[in-house]
């Protein structure tokens, strides 16, 4: 049996009391998918969480209580989800804006706590592992990075022709 929540438009959220579940509709032009994931994750201890995309620009979140839930309890879930969603969305923005400071503190905290590696730890370190992602190709060989130019050189063009292409090729 589908029921409205008092004070909440039906198109935004409603309850299915027979199934102890509530559905919310989220405007995905306002809230990023990462925020929806973040808010959803905080509910998986109490609810089964289902996501769907009923239409372009919309996400549907279904919170099905693990234990039988009353309408008031379901309304509480919906309200808490909305608050958590807002917190996640804003946190995502703030974290991006303050990323420099947060990373600096984190690096200092961990480096201060860990100290330098011992000789034994260095000996055990696997230097053959990929050290980091390299989107700009800094660690790539010349040939790997400018394979097209290498192909041109094979066709007999002079070394000056092997100069890197303008930035858009790397982008």
């Amino acid at each position: 049996m589908t029921q409205r929540f008092a004070g909440v438009p039906d198109v935004l959220a409603h309850a299915d009391l027979d199934d102890s579940s509530a559905e919310l509709t989220v405007d995905s032009t306002l809230y990023s998918l990462e925020s929806v994931y973040g808010a959803s994750f905080t509910f998986i201890d109490r609810c089964f969480v289902f996501l769907d995309r009923p239409a372009e620009g919309q996400l549907r979140v279904t919170l099905a209580a693990k234990k039988s839930a009353t309408q008031d309890e379901l309304r509480g879930f919906v309200g808490e989800f909305a608050n958590e969603l807002l917190a996640c969305a804003w946190r995502e923005k703030i974290t991006a804006e303050n990323r420099g400071a947060i990373e600096a503190v984190t690096m200092q905290a961990l480096a201060g706590a860990m100290g330098p590696p011992s000789l034994d730890e260095l000996e055990d370190f696997d230097f053959s592992e990929e050290p980091f992602e390299d989107p700009l190709g800094i660690a790539m060989s010349w040939e790997e990075k400018y394979g097209k130019d290498k192909a041109k050189r094979k066709q007999g063009e002079g070394p000056e022709a092997a100069a890197p292409e303008p930035a858009e090729e790397e982008a």
Partner: peptide, 13 residues
């Protein structure tokens, strides 16, 4: 219901 829910939570996680 429980099996579907646990599966969905797991896939989401």
């Amino acid at each position: 219901r429980r099996l579907a829910g646990e599966l969905a939570n797991y896939a989401l996680g």
